[in-house]
Design a protein around this nucleic acid. Sequence first.
DNA 1: ACGATATTTCATATTTACGTTAACTATTAT
DNA 2: ATAATAGTTAACGTAAATATGAAATATCGT
Lengths: 102, 102
Amino acid sequence: MTAEIDRTLAALADPTRRRIVDVLRKRPRRAGELAAAFEMSAPAMSAHLKVLRKIGLVEPSGLAEDARVRVYRLRPERFGELRTWLDEVEAYWDGQQRARPR
Amino acid sequence: MTAEIDRTLAALADPTRRRIVDVLRKRPRRAGELAAAFEMSAPAMSAHLKVLRKIGLVEPSGLAEDARVRVYRLRPERFGELRTWLDEVEAYWDGQQRARPR
DNA sequence: ACGATATTTCATATTTACGTTAACTATTAT
DNA sequence: ATAATAGTTAACGTAAATATGAAATATCGT
């Protein structure tokens, strides 16, 4: 679905959100932890997480001892469609066009 | 350079620009051809092409018979950094990092 | 030279995105 | 019960993105 690629790209276009992905790549984090790490208000971070959550790039793993906290983790499998599209774009090399002179 | 990934994502975040890439993936096109194909004014298309051109995702191939026209073509090698980042993100696997064959 | 054509730049209007503070909900602790 | 904590939602201001028409630039055709 090409609309999903668009939404994935829109979600990742914001530098803060892309860095959130980078941080979560190492390990899951609490929402407040992320807000502090990015020196940004909790509502602002919540909005970013909402965007990422809606397209499914991150997910709150509800298994915290304290039910107030939300630990977000990455869902790397959700990047697959974007990667497939990128593959196709780069396959242009194999198509009619030939390598550019260096 | 992580800033370049950010700029690449920003350039591709607009659905029109992503589709421009898709169209150019098949073959190079004239600017006016693209404006017509997307049912959009020439200035609007020109602005989109400027964004893509600035980060180097497309390039006007200046060797047209008619010097008025600009034929834009894709530069797929410019997607490499984004792809590398995507590879790293997908290397995350269920709470653990795991190597991924290239 | 003159008018038509292709594209970009300019000026401008509208929409959208992002950040902040305040308020709300739910949960934990004393 | 009351207060504190974690997070989200609401309201709102501002900055940036995108579209349009008009004008500018350059080239082609007659």
